[in-house]
Design a protein around this nucleic acid. Structure first.
Lengths: 238, 238
DNA sequence: CGCCAGGTTGATTTCGCTCAAGCAATGTGG
DNA sequence: CCACATTGCTTGAGCGAAATCAACCTGGCG
């Protein structure tokens, strides 16, 4: 382990890059080459992986856990731009745009993250068309989502946006029960939900209260039950 | 001219793709090949180039004029996501993401736009690594901007965001006078400025009134004079 | 001339923010 | 083991920025 706590990977499967929808394009030799230049490290909850404004030292492959990407404003508030799950690669955007990090990343629970140094990542993406194409497609999808998010933020109310968020999380982490109700464990705190929506945590509290009152959803700690998932879609018309 | 008003390009320089920061990566033979599959057309102000929700028929290279990219909401309002100037390529995002158009495009003044059919554009991007890389870098920059825009929309007031917009337009279209004042012709209507900021046009009117009152800027129709450009930056702290 | 598009202004409302208090669960030091 | 701080969340009261609703102005045009 070096002094930053990174441990050099040895085997081809150390980082698990095969499980990345982007890096999987690489052949065995390239994959081994990349893993040789990768360092894996475990982060505790709340630990920072990189800071907003930092120069890009590499790209970060999330191997396990959950990572949040944040942007702070001048008043100490922050928005949570996205959640990164195992298989996601962070930092490729500023690397390719030739910019510093425009957002910071932080472990939202204990996580394992592999850093691939910038030089290696850049040459690999530039030399290997299939890899570049995968990142291009990823960027294209993320760009569409980001534009949608801007549009939503200026046209929809907090309650509607919260309903949207619930549906997105539902698609990924919801379990449909026998009686047709949807069960979901929120991956993040109330404060972080607020940061994802770009509102105050008090506003989230009030929206949750409203959804309870109208029977649309029931919240206990981080677990949510939506008796009739269809009723969430109705929220969109508000 | 075919029944859609497109006229088949003949020469290599018909569309002027060499002037694109992306397409310029192509060699002469590829460039000619693409131009062979391109159709140029002139659009009058207000004419629609493609609609939100349409399947992607091709990518659109702006040769002359000014094009606006819009997203509508359910209540008939719309946000203006971006302005496309000569040299810009539109529609590559949904093409690569394998989606339908998630925004519509419309000529904001008389414009010439060349459509490169989807099949040609896709194979060219997939076969030609340099071209793909250029679009990847473009997407990376646009993604950063889009995330910034979301963050700004939820953390900054209308007045601050308007000042930001003025600075951006200034960088691109401002003329610095001998006395240090900045002169700028707004490329779009007040309504469209509102649509870019994601606010009502009345709010833009009021902000303009405020900036007049405080002497920060003077507005006559679409021309703006900022006596002290530094004072715009001060607005950012509000 | 009447009409309409684009813009401004004023009066009123509303949604979400700010400020403030309080509560439950968890941790910590004496 | 208790006193006390801390963290995460909720609730209430009041405020403020921008939306809404409505009137009106100006210039261009059939």
């Amino acid at each position: 382990m070096d002094r930053n706590g990174y441990t050099e990977s040895s085997g081809r499967t150390e980082c698990g890059l095969q499980d990345s929808p982007e890096w999987c394009a690489l052949g065995n030799t390239d994959l081994e080459d990349v893993e040789k230049h990768a360092r894996c490290r475990c982060y505790e909850t709340g630990e920072v992986i990189f800071y907003e404004g930092d120069p890009v030292k590499g790209v970060y492959f999330v191997k396990a856990g959950l990572v949040g990407v944040r942007k702070a404003d001048l008043n100490g508030n922050s928005t949570l731009l996205k959640l990164a799950w195992p298989g996601d690669t962070l930092g490729y955007r500023p690397l390719l745009a030739g910019q510093a990090h425009r957002a910071g990343a932080e472990a939202l629970r204990q996580s394992v993250v592999c850093m691939i140094d910038a030089r290696t990542a850049r040459t690999m993406i530039e030399q290997n068309p299939a890899l570049g194409l995968n990142f291009l497609k990823r960027a294209a999808r993320e760009l569409g989502d980001a534009e949608q998010k801007f549009h939503d933020s200026v046209t929809l109310h907090t309650r509607t946006r919260f309903a949207h968020l619930l549906v997105v999380l539902q698609d990924r982490f919801g379990r449909l029960a026998d009686d047709g109700s949807m069960h979901l464990d929120l991956p993040v705190s109330r404060s972080d939900i607020a940061a994802m929506l770009g509102v105050r945590r008090e506003s989230v509290s009030r929206v949750i209260h409203e959804l309870e009152d109208t029977g649309v959803a029931h919240f206990v700690d981080r677990s949510v039950v939506v008796p009739d998932p269809g009723s969430l879609a109705v929220e969109f018309a508000r």
